[in-house]
Nucleic acid binder design. Structure first.
Length: 139
DNA sequence: GCCAACGTTGGC
DNA sequence: GCCAACGTTGGC
């Protein structure tokens, strides 16, 4: 079981909107970066990902689950890119901010801190556990 | 296949 | 709103 982190600008697609979609979930489209695409293709059904709000909030606000593995992104005319479907699992009661992660040496190697522009990132087991604890969410 | 130019992302 | 970082594109 791998863990992931998905970034979205809440003005475009927020965790609240994701929650409203319920169990049927929503396609995660619009990734136009090859590194991010590679990560999307590695995501397996049932794996969990953090939902991060970039620009507004700059914090991890929830957890989502992959319900459909990589398929061609319907919003990409060139056919080169990939989408997955995710559904909301639960919110993070106390969102964990980028500032917090940057200030904590335990996260100095985290992709979110080192490669802030990458929109689909892997998260290590340790990072996942720590952030869940800090956010007041169960695993 | 290199590399300069350009565009986009995202933190501040 | 600015600007740094960095990925992509396209000319050669």
């Amino acid at each position: 079981m791998a863990y992931w982190l998905l970034k979205s600008e809440p003005d475009a697609w927020s965790f609240e909107q994701q929650v409203k979609k319920g169990a049927k979930g929503e396609p995660w489209t619009g990734v136009r970066n090859f590194t991010a695409k590679q990560n999307l293709k590695l995501m397996k059904k049932g794996e969990h990902a953090f939902f991060y709000h970039s620009n507004v909030g700059k914090e991890i606000v929830g957890i989502v689950e992959v319900i459909r593995e990589a398929y061609p992104d319907p919003t990409d005319e060139s056919g080169r890119f990939t989408a997955v479907d995710v559904k909301a699992v639960k919110p993070i009661p106390k969102p964990v901010t980028l500032v917090t992660l940057k200030g904590d040496p335990r996260f100095s190697e985290m992709a979110l801190v080192k490669y802030s522009r990458l929109s689909v990132q892997p998260v290590t087991d340790r990072e996942w556990r720590l952030i869940c604890e800090m956010g007041g969410a169960g695993r």
